[in-house]
Nucleic acid binder design. Sequence first.
DNA 1: TAACATTGTTAGCCGATATTAACAGTATTG
DNA 2: CAATACTGTTAATATCGGCTAACAATGTTA
Lengths: 159, 159
Amino acid sequence: MDREQSPSMEDYLEAISVLARGRKVVRVTQISNMLGVKKPSVTSALKKLREANLIEHERYGYVELTSDGQRVADDVFRRHEILRHFLVEILGIDQERASEDACKMEHAISSVTAEKLSKFVDFVLSRPQGEPEWLKSFKHYSEHGNFPAECVTKCEREK
Amino acid sequence: MDREQSPSMEDYLEAISVLARGRKVVRVTQISNMLGVKKPSVTSALKKLREANLIEHERYGYVELTSDGQRVADDVFRRHEILRHFLVEILGIDQERASEDACKMEHAISSVTAEKLSKFVDFVLSRPQGEPEWLKSFKHYSEHGNFPAECVTKCEREK
DNA sequence: TAACATTGTTAGCCGATATTAACAGTATTG
DNA sequence: CAATACTGTTAATATCGGCTAACAATGTTA
């Protein structure tokens, strides 16, 4: 049930997948830049990933994900996006920190939990009325430390 | 802004702190059992933690947290509990998986995000009416894949 | 095509963290 | 108090994932 790849290898796969989107080919230097590691680290990671049949890579050549590699990369990226979305849209964390936290947490959260979290976010945000009032109140409270006037009166009324 | 201790060292400190609660003294074997590592691993971790002034430990003696060590352990444990609480009470994840996930995520989440998450859980659960209707609906939906009857009619009404 | 710039690899190293095997210290108890 | 059982440490080793320095391959351009 545990992850078959280490956080580090997951990062490499995710980076390759993201880089492969725009441009046609992926090269060592791009991966190195994206992950903030030196090129020899990339080379040795690629060796390992190739031996695990997650990428194709010939000496001095381009890097491509195999279908297995793509699957793993997609899984990681999905967890990343679910977490980031939750942090930004529900908790109201700023984009930058949300991405940072998601980058770390994506390797720690189980798939089951991630899917549940995804459902939760969808559930909260996809109501017919749009973002619910209580969430707006939370964000206001969270930012200003007090409740918006309407909320207080509403709460009083409901008591 | 980054964690000053590695995930591994955080785990040792947290374990020591938890073990110290019930019993009077903490010993190597207990830590070893709790974390599922062999005793020599504990010994070398303790050496490192002692050098960082996070624990007191004499050869063949008991283990105690310093005030610095206790502070770090408390921080980690707090993040753990915030995450576990969220996973269980909001997402409805079962206890066991929630604890497992929290154990991993506690090392990845930033303190800022953890505190925001804590506020969120408090906000949702501490309404005057108790657990809100929408959350009950989510849990029902999440478990059964459909919406409880009252929710649907309520949603229709509100459209 | 020769010189240069860029890119990628290799070799060797390091620190972190875990392991096993062997040993040393401590505690219990007959 | 001596034998035994338990607990903890040491030493040696492994794996992982990063690094630098040096070199090799590739690509560009004068």
